[in-house]
Design a protein around this nucleic acid. Structure first.
Length: 466
RNA sequence: UCCUCAGUAGCUCAGUUGGUUAGAGCAUCUGACUGUUAAUCAGAGGGUCGUUGGUUCGAGUCCAACCUGGGGAGCCA
């Protein structure tokens, strides 16, 4: 790879053995301190959470130039890499030449040397990358995204790009964002007075996808093992630290996997991502551990090392009924588990991640494979500490008649799903899959408590800034 | 969407049962200092108290609505 004009990244300089050599570094000023004659600049270029210290003999430089070096300004520095005379760092650069690329007026630059609240930084999301915290979070996010692709690639999965714009609301996963080019003040109308989407761009009603699963299934029933990893949209009015209107979802879909194979994959996959982050982002995770969540590293190691507990829904209900805890919502077979129930199972009872299976069919989606008892389906939810449900998946119903009957029972427009049903008509196969919300996984690994702090530009109700 | 807490200087906050001229730390600016580590020390500037309306002789403080943010819940990933 061609490198730009001999610049060396801070990450490499900090472990460099080339003491006494001339080096060129570029980055943004975190702090400047010192006296009349000597100054110290902490410079960061995003390659690592650590800064390189630039030592400046002020009398050797033009006073006007020195004045431009303030917190947030951008510099290129040529100088000599030296063993540091001070404590706190091994090496430092004694500046020979300083070029100021961009100034940052200290009076109006919104970031101080001192820490800020996450809420304040959220308001300046265009600049928050320049803080230690967000540098760490987004480096870890990248590492995890890479780990996901690597895991699937190494295991023979194909990355399938499912559509962002969809013509069906089949899954019923939530409220959708409509995609339309019609004049919303004066749309064309049908003779019945409704909006005439035949006149719209696609000739039908279209929305932003809520899930790539159904399309992924089509791929799996030919390519055997596929996964999607892309943006997903929900127009729900959810105001919580765990929900976004636009988030990234990972959805593997595998032919010939039953529910047990599915669980094995989910557990192995989650452990792989956590292990990969621990091994490849140790500095960033250590920083987050020290600053925000003292038990973070311990918890991550725990997840990697311990086997997840597997239990079925009915068992979980029994545990909850016997539980020595007061719940706001009643525990009853047939109703969905509430957040408090999930938390009790994971944090109090089993004390490790839990995979729950065989839920009542009434509370789960139409495409899940029905058990022979006529009451439950082969669904599995992976429950994590702090977050609750992090993965939802199932073996899919591969029987044409059963699937069609369920679609009709739930009054889902069968016509819209003709293509989905055809896979069960021609060469159907047992298959399974699951969905993982990427940001929730990043939350778990970074320990950030608000999901808005693990995606660069969060989209939430009444907020689409940047 | 519901419950709950909050909104005062650039940032983080204090502000007593309603009472004269609204405070602190940090940041910024000026000065001092030859090795600092969120440097230190001295001084200075900086406010329509979220918005609108109301109660009152008098509102940062009480009331109402709205806006914004945090936490919890629902919906979910």
């Amino acid at each position: 790879m061609k490198k730009e004009n001999n610049r060396i990244k801070v990450k490499d300089l900090l472990v460099s053995e080339n003491l006494g050599k001339e080096v060129h570094v570029k980055g943004w000023v975190r702090t400047k301190r010192g006296s009349r004659k000597i100054g110290f600049i902490a410079l960061n270029d995003g390659s690592t959470i650590h800064n390189i210290q630039i030592v400046v003999d002020f009398p050797e430089f033009d006073e006007q130039t020195i004045k431009l070096i303030t917190t947030g300004s951008c510099l290129g520095v040529k100088g000599t890499l030296m063993k540091s005379e001070g404590h706190g760092q091994n090496v430092e650069i004694h500046a020979g030449q300083i070029e100021v690329y961009g100034t940052a007026d200290p009076d109006s630059y919104p970031l101080q040397k001192k820490g800020h609240t996450l809420e304040y930084l959220r308001e300046i999301a265009h600049l928050r990358f320049r803080t230690n915290t967000f540098g760490a979070v987004f480096r870890v996010r990248h590492t995890m995204a890479y780990a996901i692709h690597k895991y699937f690639n190494d295991n023979g999965f194909y990355y399938l790009h499912t559509p962002i714009i969809t013509g069906s609301d089949a899954e019923g996963a939530g409220e959708m964002f409509r995609v339309s080019v019609l004049d919303h003040l004066d749309p064309p109308k049908t003779s019945e007075g409704k909006v005439d989407y035949e006149k719209d761009f696609f000739g039908k009603e279209t929305n932003l996808t809520v899930s790539g699963q159904l399309e992924a299934e089509l791929g799996a029933l030919a390519l055997s093992e596929v996964y999607t990893f892309g943006p997903t949209f929900r127009a729900e009015n959810s105001n919580t630290p765990r929900h976004l209107a636009e988030f990234w979802m990972i959805e593997p879909e595998m032919a010939f996997y039953d529910i047990n194979d599915n669980m094995d994959l989910a557990e192995d996959f989650l452990k792989y991502i956590v292990r990969y982050a621990l091994e490849n982002s140790p500095d960033d995770l250590e920083f987050l551990n020290n600053m925000y969540d003292k038990e973070l590293l311990e918890r991550l190691k725990f997840v990697v090392e311990k086997e997840f507990v597997r239990a079925d829904y009915t068992e979980a209900i029994e545990v909850l009924k016997k539980a020595d805890a007061k719940f706001e919502f009643p525990v009853k077979w047939g109703s969905d588990l509430q957040a408090e129930h999930e938390r009790y199972l994971v944090e109090k009872h089993y004390k490790r991640p839990v995979i729950l299976t065989d839920y009542p069919k009434e509370i789960k989606a139409f495409y899940m494979k029905q058990n022979t008892d006529g009451k439950t389906i082969r669904a599995m939810d992976v429950l994590f500490p702090r977050l609750g449900e992090i993965i939802g998946g199932s073996q899919r119903e591969e029987d044409y008649d059963k699937l069609k009957r369920r679609i009709n029972e739930l009054k889902i427009p069968e016509k819209e799903l003709w293509w989905y049903l055809e896979t069960r008509k021609f060469g159907t196969a047992p298959h399974s899959g699951f969905g993982l919300g990427f940001e929730r996984m990043v939350q778990f690994v970074t320990g950030m408590s608000n999901i808005r702090d693990v995606i660069p530009f969060p989209r939430t109700p009444r907020n689409a800034e940047f």
